[in-house]
Structure formats: structure tokens, C-alpha cells
Design a protein around this nucleic acid. Structure first.
Lengths: 210, 210
DNA sequence: CGGGGTCTTGATTTCATTCAAAAATGGTGG
DNA sequence: CCACCATTTTTGAATGAAATCAAGACCCCG
């Protein structure tokens, strides 16, 4: 809260840093800046009318979020880990977008990139079965996690995973335990993940019975 | 089946018509046509690996679907009712998009329009409670349904509503019955819907206990 | 007047939530 | 290095809500 990043005035394309839990932008704010993530993980949070907190998507290094597809941001972006990013003014981003879009003859994949994880979540949580959801979620994120010492860096708290999968933290925990006991994954540390049998994980994500 | 001249007046683009259940485009096909709906209702269907069928969104007259945000369509579009539509080539649509996008200084709302119902579904089915989901779903569609004889035309089969809300058809049926018995809605016919107490419906969608 | 599809209903089972509490983890300052 | 704290994760037992299973009713259509 004392960090200098809360200053309202920022320069275009200047690197910024935020600590875990801090907000990049708020749902409903005018979308006049695009955030390009350099490092860390960001969660897209939507609060339903009754105040229930849902996570629409996780975003990783390389992703651009806050694209001006609507007048306002459609979700709140919060740092899960420490996050490095650069901001672009929406108008400047828009010019660049138009130029490359004209050359390619189709819309930039960047739009797709922000919408895709949201779309995918809808499919994942539409499937019944906790284990199926967790496995599908893992499959969708493991390729974006950096490796360190033979294991993936997996700094997502289970409460966030639960909010993403529309289940409770307790159920999330039990699901991970089951995967560990089956020998599909292992977690050398709280924030480390190792895929022991990726094929099995994918099979479980496809609905195979344990 | 019908005479080909039954609808003589079309726009410059070629008008088309499909019967209930027919496919406009398939998930995975190259997205080189944009479909602009003139009448009827279309469902966006995603089939998970095991063959489970999910409906990502319903689309209505005026919606444009199949936008070239990605190289391929991300869902299958099927007619729920009889549907009238016009097709635009993706390249031509793209030119028009670029022109108006440059004038407006931001991306066209049309992109938002296709993504929004998908985004909204993710929020709806992320909330627990069947009645909450059904009410939130009804609130999100009633404004797009035409009226006829004092009631809304509501031709969505319950099996489709169930596939959209990620619940079973039986549960869907029970939910509607409960709303009828509470006096929130009435259904004079199978495909007609009347909102008796919209405020109550919205309250239920917001999590109020029945 | 069938007949196939959609809808409806009840009984049972399954699974995730809830509630409650303990254990592990990470950070802090002495 | 250790004690202490707050936070996160873990575990168990009881509860509850929706899925499942199995019929039956209804409705449009030919």
C-alpha cells in the first residue's frame, strides 16, 4: 500500500511492478490502457451481484490484458505473484493493432489470447466432477509455468484455483491429494508441481474414471 | 422443402435459411465467413473430448457470429429455431471492421457482442444453486425475445437450457416448476413465457433465498 | 389415432459443500 | 537459530443439493 506504483500518472511503455494482491485495473473502469505482462501471474476477478468472487482467467508473462474491446474493463486484474508489466495507452495500442491487422488480413491473435482462457474456463467448469475440472485446469496451465530444479513453479494458492473452478478450497485440496496419491502428480513444495504421468492427467481431464 | 422464392427480398449479401437442428458452421472449421442473424435463435455448441455437449451461448437476430478472431471457429453454430441469416466473407467483413474501427478509435462493439454472452455464461454457471442459474439465464435472454399475444416467444427446449446451464434436463424442469409455483413466471404454452414478477426474478438471480 | 420426442415426476444415490478443527507453511523480529 | 504469528492447507463428519434411474404424461406431427 505504500508502494509507489499507486501513483496515477504513468508513462507509456514504462515498466512497472506490483506486489501480490495489488490491483492492475478494476472491473468497470474505462479501458484506456493495455497491460502487457512481463513476469508473474495475474488473475481476472469478477464479482457477482451477491459479492461472490469468481476468477475468470489466469494470465501469464507475454499476455496482453485490458484490451479495449469494450468501453470498460470487464474484470478486475490482480497480481497473484509479484508481477512485472508495461502499459500502453489504448489509443497507441489501437494504432499498432490496426496497422498489423491490415497487413495480416485478419484480427490479431492478441484479442483471441485474452478471450480464450475465459472461453476455456466456461467449458471446464461446465463439466461435472471435481477431478475432471482440476485435471483440465492443470493441463491448460502447465505449459505456461516456468521450470526450476526439475519442477514447475506453481505459485497459485488453492483458494484461487477454487475460485477459478467454481468449487470450494476444501474440495480443491482433496482433489490434489487424490492426484498425488494416484501418482499422477507430485508437489515437492507447496508452490512446486511435477507432472509424473501427463498422459494419465489428460485422460482424467477427458473424463476417464479413476 | 419450401419454395425457393418464398422470400424474394434479400440484401446485397446472399440470404440463407436453415431449419431447426441444422448447422451454420462447425467448430474447428476455418473461420472465413461471418454470419449475421436476421431471425431465429442459434446455439453455440462445444463438444468436449468425451462427447459431452455444452452450449456456450445463444445468439439472436442482429448478432454477428463466427468473427475471425481466431483462425478457426471456436464452437459449432446450430439453429435452434428456423433461422434467417446473411453471410459476409471474412475478408470483406474485415475491411469494414478496419474502417469503422479507425473512425471510432476503438474496437467495434461487434467483437464484444459475440464474446459477452460467453463471458456471462461463465459467471452464471460458476454460481451454485440451480434456481439462481435459471433466473440469471432468464434475465439475460428475456430482453431479446419477441413478444406475441402478451407473452414472450420462448422456443428454447429445456434440454438446451440444461446444456447451457451445466445442469440436467430434469433439474431444469424442476427449477421452472418452482418458479411457476412461486408465481414469478408463467408458461401459457410450452414455448411461451410470461414474466409476472421481474423484480423477484432479478432478486432470485442475485442470490436471494426462496 | 398412433408415435416419437419433449417434458414431468418420484425415489434413490452420489458427490460436493458445510462446519469445525488441526496441521503445515512462510514471514517476522528477537 | 528460534519462538511466534498469520495465513494457507489439510482432514474428518455431517449435511444437503443435484444427478441418476425409472416411469409416466403431454404434445405436436404425420
Amino acid at each position: 500500500m505504500l508502494s509507489p506504483v499507486s501513483q496515477p500518472h504513468q508513462f507509456s511503455a514504462v515498466g512497472q511492478r506490483v506486489q501480490p494482491g495489488e490491483v492492475l485495473f478494476l472491473e468497470g473502469d474505462p479501458s484506456n490502457q493495455v497491460y502487457e505482462l512481463r513476469s508473474g501471474i495475474v488473475r481476472g476477478v469478477s464479482v457477482s451481484c451477491e459479492g461472490e468472487r469468481q476468477i475468470s482467467a489466469f494470465f501469464f508473462a507475454g499476455d496482453q490484458i485490458g484490451l479495449p474491446v469494450a468501453r470498460e474493463y470487464r474484470f478486475t486484474a490482480e497480481a497473484v505473484t509479484e508481477v512485472g508489466y508495461v502499459v500502453h495507452s489504448a489509443t497507441r495500442w489501437h494504432e499498432t493493432f490496426l496497422r498489423s491487422s491490415r497487413e495480416e488480413g485478419r484480427l490479431l491473435p492478441s484479442i483471441c489470447a485474452e478471450q480464450d482462457p475465459i472461453f476455456r474456463r466456461g467449458i471446464i467448469i461446465g463439466r461435472n466432477g471435481v477431478l475432471v475440472r482440476i485435471c483440465a485446469f492443470l493441463i491448460s496451465v502447465v505449459d505456461r509455468l516456468p521450470e526450476e530444479g526439475g519442477a514447475l513453479v506453481f505459485p497459485l494458492p488453492q483458494v484461487d484455483i477454487a475460485a477459478y473452478l467454481a468449487i470450494t478450497p476444501e474440495t480443491t485440496c482433496r482433489g490434489f491429494r487424490q492426484l498425488r496419491e494416484m501418482g499422477v502428480i507430485s508437489m515437492p513444495r507447496r508452490d512446486r508441481l511435477r507432472l509424473i504421468d501427463r498422459g494419465w492427467l489428460e485422460a482424467l481431464a477427458s473424463g476417464m474414471q479413476p
